[in-house]
């Protein structure tokens, strides 16, 4: 048997296996894709969503790892790093140097926030890629899984992206699903226990708001009310006034951009993985998993570096014509 033939046979076998997996392990239909996080259970009306659960898991992991990694350091030992401590030092130092390359003088003031953004986003992106994170779950009705309970008195406009309205399908059609129906005939859906917090607008919006307010806080702290002169700048002619107003708008657009950049990337990645797994369950999702690992890192990095850059911009004196301001103290 020639070498070429062997290779061709291997390739054919792999492709055949991939196609065959569609019939061996394939799904009948794509699981419902929800843009909003789903409620796993409620505590006194407070919706505990699956993304919140993964948030807590990421918190515990991060703090636990940090605690273990720096145990020796906090006891005043461990000047020769080993293992986990070495890795933690490497990452923290890398982020610190990156932040310092952006703004040398004020790095100590915003470093904690920037690094926390990076680690938290990274963990929430990567943890959601672990097997079982999107597939193990509990059965809930549509109403139970909704974050914001539908107000029955106001009839919402029917939207096409929210999935099938309960009225369109009868419960019997979905009885073959993984959850079936409950006693009263309501259709049950599988609510995954964990969902990436980055694919939840609450988390991304919260981070975007934090980034925005921290930036403005540093700006006001450094320049006082003179910080507003960057936006309401009517002394230097109409063009500069227009630029100032544009800056003001872009300041608020940042919130939306931060929110939807992270959300869009991670959510789209999850949808792509789901669709690929639906098309051919075996091997096809593999390159996309690799790509999602990369995207998860890049998004965490971009969120951090943009926050740092915006803070650095807010801390830069913005009047080129020599008006006296209280400059940030060099440290």
């Amino acid at each position: 048997m020639s070498n070429t033939l062997k290779k061709v046979l291997i390739v054919l076998g792999v492709v055949g296996l991939m196609v065959g997996s569609r019939f061996i392990a394939g799904m009948d239909e794509i699981p419902p894709i929800s843009i909003a996080p789903e409620v796993v259970f409620r505590v006194a009306g407070y919706p505990v969503t699956n993304s919140l659960l993964l948030t807590l898991l990421a918190d515990v992991l991060l703090v636990g790892l940090a605690f273990v990694a720096t145990r020796k350091l906090r006891n005043g030992e461990g000047l020769v790093p080993r293992g986990l401590q070495n890795f933690a030092e490497m990452s923290v130092e890398g982020i610190y140097n990156l932040c310092r390359s952006v703004d040398r003088r004020n790095v100590d003031r915003f470093f904690a926030i920037a690094a926390t953004i990076f680690f938290f986003v990274l963990f929430s992106n990567w943890l959601a890629l672990l097997p079982g994170m999107g597939s193990i779950g509990v059965c809930r009705t549509h109403e139970q899984a909704l974050v914001n309970p539908v107000h029955l008195e106001e009839q919402p406009v029917e939207s096409p992206l929210e999935g099938a309205a309960p009225g369109e399908h009868t419960a019997e059609e979905h009885a073959a699903g993984p959850c079936g129906v409950d006693d009263e005939g309501h259709e049950l859906v599988l609510v995954p226990l964990f969902r990436s917090p980055s694919a939840d607008l609450n988390m991304t919006l919260a981070l975007a708001l934090i980034s925005f307010f921290v930036t403005e806080y540093f700006g006001f702290k450094a320049f006082g009310l003179g910080y507003l002169g960057k936006f309401f700048n009517f002394k230097e002619g109409p063009i500069m006034a227009g630029v100032g107003i544009l800056e003001l708008i872009s300041e608020f657009v940042r919130i939306i951009a931060f929110t939807f950049r992270l959300f869009g990337n991670i959510f789209a990645g999850e949808v792509v993985l789901l669709v690929m797994a639906f098309l051919l369950p075996w091997l096809l999702p593999l390159p996309f998993y690799g790509f999602e690992v990369f995207v998860g890192f890049i998004q965490a990095f971009i969120f951090m570096i943009l926050t740092v850059a915006f803070i650095a911009m807010a801390l830069t004196p913005h009047h080129p014509h020599g008006e006296v301001h209280e400059h940030p103290t060099p440290s």
Binding site: R254, L306, A309
Partner: peptide, 28 residues
């Protein structure tokens, strides 16, 4: 690198706005 990311963020903001508009249309 930092400046590039800022520029990319500004360019990407446009897409994100259209994404948001898309969401808003899609979710009525």
């Amino acid at each position: 690198r930092t400046t590039m990311f800022i520029g990319i963020a500004f360019a990407e903001a446009l897409f994100i706005i259209s994404l948001v508009i898309g969401f808003m249309i899609g979710f009525a």
